[in-house]
Structures are given as structure tokens and as C-alpha cells.
Design a protein around this nucleic acid. Sequence first.
DNA 1: CGACGCTATGCAACAAATTGCATTTAACTC
DNA 2: GAGTTAAATGCAATTTGTTGCATAGCGTCG
Lengths: 181, 181
Amino acid sequence: MSLEYAILSTLFASPCSGYDLAKQFDGSLGFFWQARHQQIYRALNKLETQGWLVAETIPQQGKPSKNIYALTAAGRAELQAWVQYPCEPPMLKNELLLKLFAGELLSRDCAIAALTRHRQRHCDRLTTYELIAQQDYPDVAQLSLAERMKYLTLRNGIRYERDRLAWCEEAIALLAATPDP
Amino acid sequence: MSLEYAILSTLFASPCSGYDLAKQFDGSLGFFWQARHQQIYRALNKLETQGWLVAETIPQQGKPSKNIYALTAAGRAELQAWVQYPCEPPMLKNELLLKLFAGELLSRDCAIAALTRHRQRHCDRLTTYELIAQQDYPDVAQLSLAERMKYLTLRNGIRYERDRLAWCEEAIALLAATPDP
DNA sequence: CGACGCTATGCAACAAATTGCATTTAACTC
DNA sequence: GAGTTAAATGCAATTTGTTGCATAGCGTCG
């Protein structure tokens, strides 16, 4: 369900094509919701059939013509209802934890190598997020309510990556400090 | 794919039935990988066809007979290869963040109510995890390597929930402190 | 006694997501 | 001149996950 609403909410901000949407999902939207273009085009068709958005076909020279989608009143109402509807925090699915849980089959070196890789990924993501925070939100006190909400999604990412980073380091230290049996 | 390996790894620890596996997924395994019984039985059939595990049917009086599954040598080898194979940290999918990102459509009260709910959920989970830590891992220094790896999955959960909790509180505070426009 | 929960399995339908492939034309690079 | 990237769309097949249902006997609680 959420994919549909992610699309509606992006189109609410400004009407655009499936291709543009895909780029949004590659960018900041993708930090907390991912989708590839195949999924997006399929969802757009469904949403159009439901009457929550309308398409306007714009012919272009050279390139294939594009469909610009915009919310209808019904779509807007639907989105409005959805944002207010209570939701639950998601459950995690984490492959690395699954591997650590297997325990007996994993060597110390192998585990530390995997943790180091993860550490690096989180570090990279954190750098990205912090750069965005610096550029887009230099002064939090000046932000409007809606802007603060958007800022909080970024804060979420920053906290999350920092915490993952710290866990990786804690984990590496704990495994490294294990006395040889 | 990971579901299959989660099953293999549980069966590696000790052979059991589909029903028992489902209970594992309801318990601590479920903290980082979820599956319901329908999915588990489907996967078990697939894994048996692939020759990674064998079933032994045990008739029981009163209850339906159960199939006890155990790893084959091939299954064990497969699992061993998998734990060593590098993996990436998962991407988040978070509905609440999607709603905050919609921003303009969400009222302050509504956002704070949602955040408060989330705060409560994370608080509950944290309590559960900390209880398990206390009971099952009273003395970390005494743990073997494999035990430490399992312990780290719990530490991951504890850190995670604490951090989510802190974010919720930070978010509530930031929204509450927004001056009326 | 009847309702419910537990043990134990599984099918069928559906929804969500991934993977692979395919088209068209311009612009750029090697 | 050949190959790649980018814009722009989409189908088909498969995998993964959810929802709903069905069976069947035993124990327990009110």
C-alpha cells in the first residue's frame, strides 16, 4: 500500500512523470522507501484507474512522449486520510544478524570482515546525510512546521546511521577481545 | 533467499518441525527476520526438493503426525557458504517517515500522536530485549565466540530501540516547540 | 456442554517486489 | 563508426510475503 501513497505524496508536492518519480525514489525518498521504475509505472496505472490521479500526455521531439501525472481531488483526499491513519513501526529484516545468529559456523575473521564492511556502508551513508543536513537545513529554528517534519526524516537517518556505526564498532571490539578457546 | 537460510540455520542448531520453526520465528529469530507458518512450510518443501534437508515423519496419537526436518551434508555446506558470503545492510522502509515527508498535509497534533505511539512501541520492545539480556547474558565476559555473536544480535536490538526512542522524543520536542504561524 | 486455544499441517488466492527484457532517439565518447 | 548514457515507457516471469481458509483431536475454562 505505502508505495501508492509515497507516489501520491510526491505528486502532491509537484506533478511529474513516472521517470521523474523514479528519480525521486533514487534520491532522498529512497532513504526510507525504495521502488524501481517497473513498480512505479504499474502503481501509476492502478492509481489512475482508481481515479486518484490524472495523466496528461506530452509529446516530445526526439524522446518518447511523457505522461505527467497530477493528483485529483479524490487522490488528495485519500492521501490526507492516509497521513492521519495510525501506523506501526516496521520490523527489521537483517541478513547480517541472521548470519551472526548462526554463530557456530562463522569464523571470527569472517564476522569481523562483514562487520567492517557494514561499518563502512553506514559511514558512507552518514556522510551523505550530514552533507544534506548542512546544505538544506542550516538553521533549524527558522523552519516551518512542514519543513521540520521533512527535517525529522533526515534526522532519523543521521541518528540511525550513527547508531549502526557504533554497534558495528562495539561488535568488532567484542569479537576481537574474545580469548582463544 | 534469506528465509531459506534462516530455516537452515535453525535446523542446524537442532532438527525440528515446521511448527517448531514457526515458534522460533515468533520468538527471538523474529526480532530480525519474520515469517509465518505458510511461508515456512512452502520453503521447507523447496529445501527438501533441493536436497538440503530430509524429513522424518513421526506419527503421534491424538495430534497430527509431524515432520521433523534435519540438514543434509549438502544443506550444511550451503549454509556454511552463505554465512561467509558478504551481504549489504538493508534499506529502511518506514511508513511514518513517509507521512512526515508529506509534511503539509499532516497536522502537528496528528504527527505528535503518531510519534507518541511509536515511542511506546519502541519502549515496549526495549523492555523485552533488556529482560532477555539480563536473563540470558548476565556475564558477557564469560561467553564463547559463538555465544558472543548471538549476544550481538540482541545488543543490536537494544541499541536500535533506544535510538528510535530517542529520535521519537527529539521529534516530539521539535514539533512541540514550533511557533504558531 | 460449548467455546476457545494448542498442536500440526497445508492449499489457494492475492499483493508486493525483483529480475530480465525490450523499445526509441538524441547526445556524447572512444 | 561503434558503443554508451540518458530520457521515457512498459511487459512478462518469478519470487516473496500476506490473508483466508480447512482439517482434526485434545485439553481447559467457565
